[in-house]
Every structure is written in structure tokens, then in C-alpha cells.
């Protein structure tokens, strides 16, 4: 038995090592090429479903220079789900200036594109070339001339929206106004809210206000639980209508000054946003009469005099 084991080890070990070495070499030789960039093309329309984005990309493994990228673009996509918007088009020349503008001159076939097809083609070139260091924006010409019917001639990678993004949270900076701890007036607190399209900025800001301040020099505008039923901005008039639940009555402080601070916490916060000039408060759909000694049956304008020095 011992002899057998020794023989096994003597013969087996070199074979095993050789196999491992061969596997490593094969892996190195057959390893997939490294991606150097992306090529952008239009997404093929399907009868069965609508894709969220009209532009899509595929991996690019070639040299990361303008000529190679443009040639690869003109050759068309390998991905069957993508299609080339440059049918019959070829690149005449390309040049990068010192301001970072890459000018690409294309053949006259490019001039046959119009409308959204032209936009798709422009952005395929822009997004692809924007990967190159030093390229800030892209201009496309046809036979050395600009297309006169196009509203923009220079394209930027940041100027395109790919999909609805309604469900993607976006960070929005808002300013919230809370009563100060000393009760002398209102103090402001900057807050970054993460919002989806379901939650308007006004509603998001109001919800954040009701949660209370993070700054210890400030205190909550509303001390009890309060539900916001609806927030609607009438852009034409700039009036923001806020409908609270009947919990409002539990939240109203006894002191008139405190009531005023509570009122303008809400009004000033909302009016600090674009397009909001006044705020109409409602409780369960009905307008309120008075608060803090003020008539609030109609829209209320902000009172910036209550806002003290910055914290």
C-alpha cells in the first residue's frame, strides 16, 4: 500500500502541476479582451414592448482615439438589439480644438437625417466621443457646413435624458424654516432631500419640516403628529395649496406668537422654492379663518422679517 501511495504521489503530482500550469496559460491566452470604451447606438424599436431609453451602448475594445471610435461607429453595432443611425454615412474628418470641442465632418448622407433621427445620430457621436480625454462637447458638420434647420449645433453629453428617471431618486436642496429655541423668530436649516417624481419638492419639503430640525438651536414647528393630505402648486398664480388632516387642531399652540411662528414656518419654507409665492392652508379641504391673529382664509405671503440671523 505504501509503495502504491508513493508511486501515486511521484507520478500524480507532476501531472497535477502540469495541468494547473496549462490551465493558467490557457486562461491568460483566452482571457476576454479588456474593454476600452463604449459605442453608442440607437435602440431598435420592438413591436412587443417599448424600451425606456432610445439610446444604448455596447462594449468597445479598440484603440481609444477619435478615428478608431468613429470608424467603429460607422461600422454599426454588433448587438442585435441596437441599430446604427448612420446608414451610408462616412466620416470625412475630425478635429479637437483647445476649448475641448470636437468637430466631426460627415458625408452628405448625414444631411438626409432630420428630426429625432438626427438627434439620435448626433448624440450617438457625442456620447461616444465624450469618453475621450479633453472632449467637452461635439459639433457635427455635413460636408463642412452646419445644418441650418437644427436648433443646436454643439452637443454636450450632460444635455441628454435617457429615460424617464421619474422613479430614480434625485437629491434636491431645500431650505426649511423652524422656530428658534429662544422663541425670538425663525431660523433656517438647509436640507438635502432625496425625491422621486411621485413626491413633489413642495410636499417633500413640508414632510421634512414636520419631522423637525436637526439643528439643536431650532425646534419643531409642529409638535404633534400631522398628516399632509395633499400639496398642489398652481403655477399660474404661484399659490401652493396645502391640505392638512384634522390632526391640525391638536397641533395649534395656544399662544398667538407660537401660532404665528408655526404658520410662517410652513409658509416661508414653501415660498423659498421656485414658482411658489403664496400658500393657502386648508384643513380637510376647508379654508381656515385665522391663525396667530392673522386672517388666513386666503393665500398667505411669507414674512421674512421673522427670519433671524443665520445659525
Amino acid at each position: 500500500m505504501k509503495k502504491k501511495t508513493r508511486r501515486l504521489v511521484l507520478w500524480g503530482l507532476p501531472i497535477l502541476l502540469a495541468a494547473i500550469a496549462a490551465a493558467v496559460i490557457l486562461a491568460l491566452v483566452l482571457r476576454p479582451p479588456q474593454r476600452t470604451g463604449l459605442l453608442w447606438f440607437a435602440v431598435k424599436e420592438s413591436e412587443d414592448h417599448i424600451t425606456p431609453a432610445a439610446l444604448g451602448c455596447e462594449d468597445y475594445y479598440g484603440a481609444l482615439d477619435a478615428g478608431a471610435l468613429l470608424d467603429a461607429l460607422m461600422d454599426g453595432p454588433r448587438d442585435p438589439l441596437l441599430e446604427s443611425p448612420f446608414q451610408g454615412v462616412h466620416v470625412l474628418s475630425w478635429e479637437l480644438d483647445q476649448e475641448g470641442t470636437m468637430t466631426v465632418d460627415l458625408s452628405e448622407e448625414y444631411g438626409g437625417l432630420s428630426g429625432v433621427d438626427l438627434t439620435l445620430a448626433d448624440y450617438c457621436i457625442t456620447l461616444t466621443l465624450s469618453q475621450l480625454p479633453g472632449v467637452e462637447q461635439v459639433r457635427t458638420l455635413v460636408d463642412g457646413e452646419e445644418l441650418p434647420y437644427r436648433s443646436k449645433q454643439v452637443f454636450n453629453a450632460e444635455d441628454v435624458i435617457f429615460s424617464g428617471t421619474e422613479e430614480e431618486p434625485v437629491e434636491v436642496d431645500v431650505t426649511l424654516y423652524f422656530p428658534r429655541q429662544d422663541g425670538a423668530g425663525l431660523g433656517s436649516e438647509g436640507r438635502t432631500l432625496t425625491l422621486t417624481e411621485d413626491m413633489p419638492v413642495t410636499q417633500g419639503a413640508l414632510e421634512a419640516l414636520l419631522q423637525g430640525p436637526e439643528d439643536t438651536a431650532l425646534r419643531a414647528a409642529v409638535t404633534h403628529e400631522l398628516t399632509v393630505l395633499a400639496v398642489r402648486l398652481d403655477e399660474s398664480s404661484g399659490i401652493c395649496y396645502v391640505n392638512f388632516s384634522t390632526q391640525w387642531w391638536d397641533c395649534v399652540p395656544e399662544s398667538l406668537w407660537e401660532q404665528r411662528l408655526m404658520l410662517f414656518s410652513i409658509v416661508n419654507t414653501l415660498c423659498s422654492m421656485d414658482k411658489v409665492t403664496q400658500v393657502q392652508l386648508l384643513v380637510d379641504g376647508a379654508a381656515l379663518d385665522a391663525l396667530g391673529g392673522l386672517n388666513i382664509s386666503g393665500p398667505v405671503a411669507p414674512d421674512w422679517t421673522l427670519v433671524g440671523a443665520a445659525d
Binding site: G115, T119, L120, Y123, S163, T202
Partner: peptide
Amino acid sequence: STREDNLYRYAMLGEIVTALR
């Protein structure tokens, strides 16, 4: 949308491209 300012940006949404066609 009140979250971002998309004015004069290009909306390459699948739905919009299909509608423009």
C-alpha cells in the same frame, strides 16, 4: 418636474422617440 431643470435638454426616452416617429 420640480426636481430638475430639463429645459432645452434632449429627451431620448423610448416613448418620446416613438411618438416623434
